[in-house]
């Protein structure tokens, strides 16, 4: 752990990414105390105001303070991003371990199902699921989670397969360890590194997916502050009042870039070959 921090510090970009992620997380946690205005109450007298000392980032098409909406929206955006990764990861890991470790018929069944899901573009699949489940933030989280299952299960499966064929597992078997013991004690920690990297990168695409669903009106429903929804609201005023769409857009970009940078660094740190 200490080594990890040391290596992190060497990489300037990763530090910036980590700080940004920290700020966004902090925003999500203490948002209600931080936000200067109520993010939902409309004030039609102050529509589409540019940035000023009162409204730092200006107001949106209904006169709501954009900064407040951004701060409170971070919670929803992160909720979609992380929870959907958690959903995708847990299902994907279980499927991947079963497929990779036991192989044979189970492997064929699971992986063909995953291939079927992969045949649809990621976002189209999420769209399909959310159309079935109905719009809403929880449903779009579930949809993105399910749509990302194949990615995780493939990564987990290939790592597990490589391990399964190694002498390590054979040696453990020869020492009388049961399958579950081997999986939990030796396989899981060894596949953790590649999986956690994919997951960090996955957060970025899940955040984007959630925002996109929100943009299309299938995710969080107005007036809930969510970055994708805010972006969609500002779309009509791109020329007259570009700040309405620009603020959530830049926030989203920063979040996604931070996640990606952090994931890249994590991969470098966790890859024993680069040490």
């Amino acid at each position: 752990m200490h080594n990890m921090l040391k290596e992190l510090r060497r990489d300037k970009l990763a530090v910036i990414a980590l700080v940004l992620l920290g700020v966004i997380f902090l925003m999500a946690i203490v948002g209600p105390y931080l936000a200067p205005f109520d993010p939902i109450t409309q004030n039609l007298h102050e529509r589409r105001l540019g940035p000023s000392l009162v409204h730092w980032l200006g107001t949106d098409e209904f006169g709501r303070d954009i900064l407040s909406r951004l701060i409170l929206g971070s919670r929803n955006t992160l909720f979609i991003g992380f929870l959907s990764v958690a959903i995708g990861l847990s299902i994907g890991c279980v499927l991947g371990v079963i497929a990779g470790y036991y192989g044979g018929f189970a492997d064929s069944c699971i992986m063909r199902a995953m291939d079927l899901m992969l045949a649809y573009p990621y976002f189209l699949l999420a769209l399909l699921i959310v159309a079935t489940l109905g719009p809403g933030m929880t449903n779009s989280t579930i949809a993105i989670g399910i749509a990302s299952v194949p990615t995780y299960s493939r990564v987990v499966r290939s790592s597990v397969m490589a391990l399964k064929g190694s002498l390590l597992v054979k040696a453990e078997e020869a020492l009388g360890a049961t399958d579950w013991r081997i999986i939990i004690l030796h396989v899981a920690p060894n596949v953790f590194a590649p999986v956690i990297v994919v997951a960090t990168l996955g957060v970025a695409s899940a955040v984007l997916g959630g925002a996109a669903l929100g943009f299309l009106g299938l995710g969080a429903q107005p007036p809930t502050p969510e970055w994708g929804v805010m972006l969609s609201g500002g779309r009509s005023y791109l020329i007259d009042a570009p700040h309405i769409a620009l603020a959530p857009g830049i926030a989203l970009a920063l979040l996604v870039v931070s996640c990606n940078l952090f994931g890249d660094t994590l991969r470098d740190i966790l890859d024993p070959k680069l040490k």
Partner: peptide
């Protein structure tokens, strides 16, 4: 068999580089 492996009969493999868990 699980009770017997490692307890009554043990096995040592060819490559000690890969038969130990690198994380433990």
């Amino acid at each position: 068999m699980v009770r017997l492996r490692g307890n009554e009969i043990a096995m040592v493999f060819q490559d000690p580089m890969t038969s130990l868990d690198p994380l433990f």
